[in-house]
Write a protein that binds this DNA or RNA. Structure first.
Lengths: 340, 340
DNA sequence: TGTAAATAGTGAAACGTTTTATCAAAGTGG
DNA sequence: CCACTTTGATAAAACGTTTCACTATTTACA
């Protein structure tokens, strides 16, 4: 079951392979009659160009790589979708891979990217593997970092303003009168995790909230750990009157913990989270949160990508820091009076 | 900024390109000393094999295509993740694309798949484009259909038992005493949508529920339409005591409609849905639903894929129909007495 | 009518690999 | 010491395209 090649088409149509190529790529001069004969040969033989051979000769591979942390993550895939649509409109396509926040895996994927001769790379990095990322850049492959930066690398970057989002979240709670605010934070080796915690901590300090260290608990960006930390928080002799949770996944754990202790939001405790998901509007009560402007990030990334793909000249890296927005719903209220 | 080729490495190490190739692929005889020199040359030159050139000569492209309907869909991407992991362990990688249920887009993607000479294709089809799907199969590329079938195509298939899931959902409601059951169904040109509706309809008939046609409303698999239909259902002079909603997206609309009318679940109305998502456990009350065994589907698809990739011989297509499971939580209760 | 430009088609080189046939040296066993 | 086999390395062919240099015909227009 040999594959049909351009040679077969040429023979079938009685022309040279150069002519077939011209028909295929709509380049150069081909007679009307000949074009038709060739087209028909292609049809009847079910010929398909071999993209590998094509990108071997032609420099353009029409491939763009996208490496994300989690492929089943709604936030990331929303961005991916926007990018994919843009690419398709440019006749390119996308290689998607996920490293699951594993640095070794990311190494292998970057290696693959290099081998595949993609024309650009959209990377949600682990934060490590600076050497390989730099290597990709050195090969003149445009790299767009999304969501997270890699220390020591200067290239295009699109991130949420995590610090700002956290600061504002705490600030909002404080404005409602809370001054014992619990925080469940994510992995700190992750720049997102770090920035969100720092924003929260700075806000707590500057706004004169209680800076009880016991109220700041790790959630490791996972549901289980968040559940445990939340439970601990709730069992404190003098528990917080509000909890700020640094991402969606951990919020699932937090809410379960609150449920399991029979507490009610916002009467017993206020809750605010960083990150949006359709269902947070349906939880009772609907969650107040900091939304990441998903669409915006996706669109910006896509635009940037398009520019990088069409621009030949050198360019200077663009850094986009996108501010999240406070979405006020019903999970935060004034703190109840407590006789401590 | 020319790319480094195998030729450069050969020159740098003072050997022939054949030898470099042998080192690269760990094939044939290479002297210990030579191997070292070559390896060093590769390191210092930062050489990266050109995967395109490689797959031109070697038949294996190490690429598997995956075409899904929506790339930001949690259900599909969970499956994709499992498959991707398996592939990586086999040294292959995945081309992910989405057709957004657009048949023309699917055509283009299938074309791309053909051109890319992938070794296998995992396809969540629109249901159309039978000709192109068949063409892929004819090229001896194993095709695994997931989630949905394509009429007239026989190949590997892994689907939920949608009919069963719907039937059981209605059956559960009926067992609680409901006999005016509303249904919000999805797109019917979609086999999933069709099967789910049929299961529900058959159950309603066989179990002697009221077969009031007004209770069966389209939701088109989207939130807005579902919201409208749900609202209509709730405004009926004699509204249903329970509603079965055929997928997650539509359930968002349904719940919003119920909220907006100030109704309470399950006191005023019972709700059951087809499809799981972490947040459905956190909604008040936690939703009773039919879960699709995501992990199972992903794993089965991955295993099947692995087999197809390693098996040379012809094989007969496997059809896997996986039963969803009823997950009882608190959104369904006995119907309240109504003086109609 | 003559000449340049436009049109139509060809053959061969090039892209960066892998593979195959070949050669040469070095071990091996009788 | 001879006839193998094993080991080590090479040059050239092949993979399926695109592109470039060329030839040959037709068209345009001054």
């Amino acid at each position: 079951m040999k594959n049909i090649t351009i040679k077969d088409v040429a023979k079938h149509a009685g022309v040279s392979i150069g002519t077939v190529s011209k028909v295929l790529n709509e380049k150069g001069y081909v007679g009307k009659e000949t074009r038709k004969r060739v087209s028909e040969a292609i049809k009847t033989l079910n010929y398909q160009v071999n993209a590998n051979a094509r990108s071997l000769k032609a420099i353009r591979t029409k491939k763009v790589g996208m490496i994300v942390s989690y492929i089943s993550n709604y936030y990331l895939m929303s961005i991916a979708k926007t990018i994919e649509d843009t690419l398709r409109s440019m006749g390119c396509h996308m290689l998607v891979m996920s490293h699951n926040e594993n640095e070794q895996t990311e190494r292998e994927l970057l290696q693959l990217i290099l081998e595949q001769r993609v024309e650009a790379l959209v990377l949600i990095p682990t934060g490590a593997n600076k050497d390989l990322v730099q290597l990709v850049i050195d090969q003149n492959i445009p790299v767009i970092l999304v969501d997270k930066k890699v220390e020591g690398i200067t290239t295009d970057l699109i991130v949420d303003d995590n610090y700002y989002g956290s600061y504002e979240s705490i600030s909002y709670l404080q404005s409602l009168g809370h001054n014992r605010i619990g925080v469940i934070y994510g992995l700190l080796k992750n720049s997102v995790g770090k920035e969100r915690l720092e924003g929260a901590l700075d806000a707590i300090e500057k706004l004169n909230c209680s800076s009880d260290k016991n109220l700041i608990m790790p959630g490791d960006f996972n549901e289980i750990k968040a559940y445990e930390s939340a439970t601990e928080l709730l069992l404190l002799p003098n528990p917080p009157t509000a909890i700020y949770c640094c991402n969606n996944t951990m919020t699932v754990g937090l809410l379960k913990a609150i449920n399991d202790r029979g507490l009610s939001i916002p009467d017993d405790i206020s809750v605010i989270t960083f990150g949006d998901v359709a269902q947070w509007e349906l939880v009772k009560p609907p969650l107040t949160l900091m939304t990441q402007p998903l669409k915006r990030i996706g669109v910006e990334a896509a635009i940037l990508l398009k520019n990088r793909l069409t621009m030949e000249e050198d360019y200077s890296p663009i850094q986009l820091v996108i501010k999240p927005e406070l979405q006020i719903r019903s999970s935060c209220a004034k703190p109840a009076f407590k006789h401590s």
